[in-house]
Design a protein around this nucleic acid. Structure first.
Lengths: 250, 250
DNA sequence: TTTACCGCGTGGTATATACCAGCATACCAA
DNA sequence: TTGGTATGCTGGTATATACCACGCGGTAAA
């Protein structure tokens, strides 16, 4: 069998267009290339790095697709920074989102344990009522101010001895990916409005009936299995979502 | 000057990869190709339509990028239907969104006229306080139930005699694109929570202090000019947003 | 002075070709 | 039966080349 490089062995060499892409991303992140600066043209890149124009174009396409750049026909390709956020809550999770805004995230566990799924939880985890699931209830803080109350549910059969981990300091996603080796592929999410009940408002230290966002999310791994589902109650006047909408071209 | 085909004259012929893409989209929409069916391979497409493999690949890439298909290395390209919705409110506007769900949209104009921009409106339209702007206030109905109260603002200097048009029946976007020839490029959007005041709740026929989504949006045309800004109050228990989040690859 | 055109650089589309890498199947040998 | 291998499909990466459409600035003509 032929030798085949993978991510796991150190000899992995990314494709040329990925390498060029990363060189350009680096220049954007370090500030060498600023917003609306012109990136090297496709022909220029191909000469500089001794690659074909198509490969250079692929590298630039990667930047455009991920929001780092925009193209103007007849003029050039230009930096867009800060890059647009199409996903208003990233798959990377709550902590990372706050960190990227310079806000100090912290958690407090309200309770954690194993419960049997009721109808609502069963439908979120795409399983049947009565299935055993982990329930982790946390309060999320930003700069020590309570922002959200989060209920996370995970199927017991996928996670052996999950509760041994410290979810006040370790991110749930990190534990799932590193300790159980589930690679998350995507998540579905719904945003609704509710008013906080007595218990919830007390935990979040706000008045009863305060309006809040209810975020329901379901996360899928590479095999399209549901690995986790979260209900997040975000205090209305401390939360806003931002997105940019681009017309579909089909 | 050389003759140059544009969308406007009828002789416009789309690029080959767009034509192939549209042929495939058509087959998906008519049901000839169903969810998880395999699409023709790149090599097969290139033989069938006498195009190069790269052009065929471009066509398939269009489908993948817009959520109509997914690729599996070594296996093929497959239909994803219903296509994923990354944008939870499309740039196409409110009416079209409801239509796509089989809900009958309708509007009622509350008022329309020219006002001078206060601080809030000026910042939304990226102009200065005191600038003259059109204000159009509408109630949005779905199946004759009031869903939202919408305040739209447009700079007077970009739209000559805008109020001649009938916004109870024509979409605002349609008028902008067809009568004034502004092609919308993208829009920014914020989602917040508010509670409806006396006047708003009366217009929407709900109790005072009902929680509602406040959608603030700014639309930009191809020259990155602000052409329109909208504040939309959507009744909380009649509205939800859905999105799928995919991790960024950079 | 104003207008029209040309040249040049840019991204956009398209061709033809080549080899690599992942998956499935059939087949053959231990 | 089991396990390797050969083959043939798939998408992924990469090269080289060509021409088109657009934006802009310089220049020559009106």
């Amino acid at each position: 069998m032929k030798e085949c490089d993978t991510i796991k062995n150190k000899s992995y060499i990314p494709p040329a267009y990925i390498q060029i892409r990363d060189i350009l991303v680096e220049k954007i992140n370090t500030g060498e290339l600023k917003s609306d600066n012109q990136l090297p043209s496709e022909r220029e890149l191909s000469e500089t790095y001794k690659i074909s124009r198509m490969t250079a174009r692929n590298a630039l396409t990667q930047l455009v697709d991920s929001g780092y750049a925009y193209r103007l026909k007849g003029k050039g390709t230009f930096v867009r920074f800060p890059k647009i956020e199409r996903d208003f809550v990233r798959l990377s999770g709550f902590s990372q989102m706050l960190k990227s805004k310079g806000i100090k995230p912290s958690n407090k566990i309200v309770k954690s344990g194993i419960v049997v799924a009721d109808k609502k939880i069963a439908s979120l985890l795409e399983t049947t009522m009565g299935t055993k699931v982990y329930e982790i209830v946390r309060i999320r803080y930003g700069n020590d101010i309570a922002l959200a109350l989060e209920y996370s549910y995970l199927p017991v059969n996928l996670f052996d001895n999950l509760l041994q981990y410290d979810f006040e300091n370790d991110s749930l996603y990190k534990v799932i990916e590193e300790n159980y080796n589930y690679k998350l592929k995507y998540s579905k999410q719904w945003i609704k409005i509710i008013t906080l009940n007595k218990e919830e408002s007390k935990l979040l230290n706000v008045k009863e009936n305060t309006p809040a966002f209810l975020l329901e999310s379901i996360s899928y791994d590479m095999d399209e299995k549901v690995v986790e589902s979260t209900l997040s109650l975000n205090i209305g006047d401390k939360t806003a979502f931002y997105t940019e909408l681009w017309p579909s071209n089909i």
